[in-house]
């Protein structure tokens, strides 16, 4: 096991690097930090780039293959960038019964992209997802981690506007 080349050479922000340093100490086994680390790294970098995988593997003493094996299992983790705001439309049964497909169609129409598409300006990406645990408030979506529930196709322009403004105001997150 080679020690990490340099503590200062992290590709993550100092805050996230510090969070990871603490995270690996939390568990009886260091490796338990792997999934949270990948998700948090993705939140910051946008996706699991080769460099992210290399650093996480290094921090946990795993092979990059091992990290990829695990990462590719989980549907929230991605190896390619998404839009700044990733719109995830649940179309599973409870949402479907209450118009999720109309909602998804409307998003496609408004954004001009389909499933897993990214708008040319990079502000939005669209994804049809499985149940997000908001069945009683269907149809529901998540924009990044924010829930929006009890929607109708007509709610789409308002939601997009809200995020467009956020994108314009602070350049993103």
């Amino acid at each position: 096991m080679t020690p990490r080349e340099s503590e200062t050479m992290s590709i993550f922000s100092p805050a996230l690097a510090a969070r990871f340093d603490a995270l690996v100490e939390k568990y009886p086994v260091k490796r338990s930090a792997l999934i949270p680390m990948m998700l948090y790294a993705q939140d910051e970098i946008g996706y699991l780039s080769d460099a992210v995988i290399a650093e996480i593997a290094d921090r946990l003493g795993l092979t990059e293959l091992d990290v990829r094996n695990v990462a590719s299992y989980y549907s929230m983790l991605r190896f390619k960038p998404a839009g700044r705001f990733n719109i995830q439309v649940c179309t599973n049964i409870s949402c479907m019964l209450r118009g999720a497909y109309d909602l998804f169609d409307r998003f496609q129409e408004e954004l001009g992209v389909g499933h897993k598409g990214i708008t040319p300006d990079g502000v939005f990406s669209l994804e049809e997802v499985e149940c997000i645990g908001a069945c009683c408030w269907a149809p529901a979506i998540q924009v990044n981690y924010d829930f929006h529930d009890e929607l109708a196709a007509d709610s789409v322009p308002g939601i997009l506007q809200q995020y467009r403004e956020r994108a314009a105001a602070n350049g993103g997150r």
């Binding site: 599973n92 049964i93 409870s94 499985e130 149940c131 645990g133 908001a134 069945c135 009683c136």
Partner: peptide, 11 residues
């Protein structure tokens, strides 16, 4: 890990 479609109680 509440994920069964139709279920949102733990939420």
């Amino acid at each position: 890990d509440e994920s069964e479609p139709g279920t949102c109680k733990d939420h």
